[in-house]
């Protein structure tokens, strides 16, 4: 596979390390009343999507950026690649 890095252009997937569902960026608030339940859901309950999947890839053999890659799990078509840091800042999940 090839991931089209937003800063570096197309790079072979072998330069990257896969983590999984981009929902991992939405870490719950540790002080919420139901924090335990939220953390349980955050860590263990993932959707196993056949189709468009937003997922985290780390450019370990590159610029060390974490990326949010939108990939179709059926066709491997990649329709969007963003720097995770931008996504995290924009979507305001930073706690």
């Amino acid at each position: 596979m090839i991931i089209n890095h937003p800063l570096l252009g197309p790079r072979d997937a072998s330069e990257f390390v896969y983590l999984g569902d981009a929902a991992l960026m939405k870490r719950p608030d540790w002080q919420a009343d139901d924090a335990a339940q939220q953390f349980y859901e955050y860590l263990y309950l993932r959707d196993n999507i056949a189709g468009q999947h937003r997922e985290l890839w780390y450019h370990e053999q590159g610029d060390r950026s974490w990326l949010v890659v939108t990939r179709n799990t059926e066709t491997h078509e990649i329709t969007a690649v963003e720097l995770a840091r931008d996504v995290a800042t924009r979507e305001g999940h930073a706690v």
Partner: peptide
């Protein structure tokens, strides 16, 4: 560019 050659960063 930063990449990997023969498994070496």
């Amino acid at each position: 560019a930063r990449t990997s050659m023969e498994h070496m960063g």
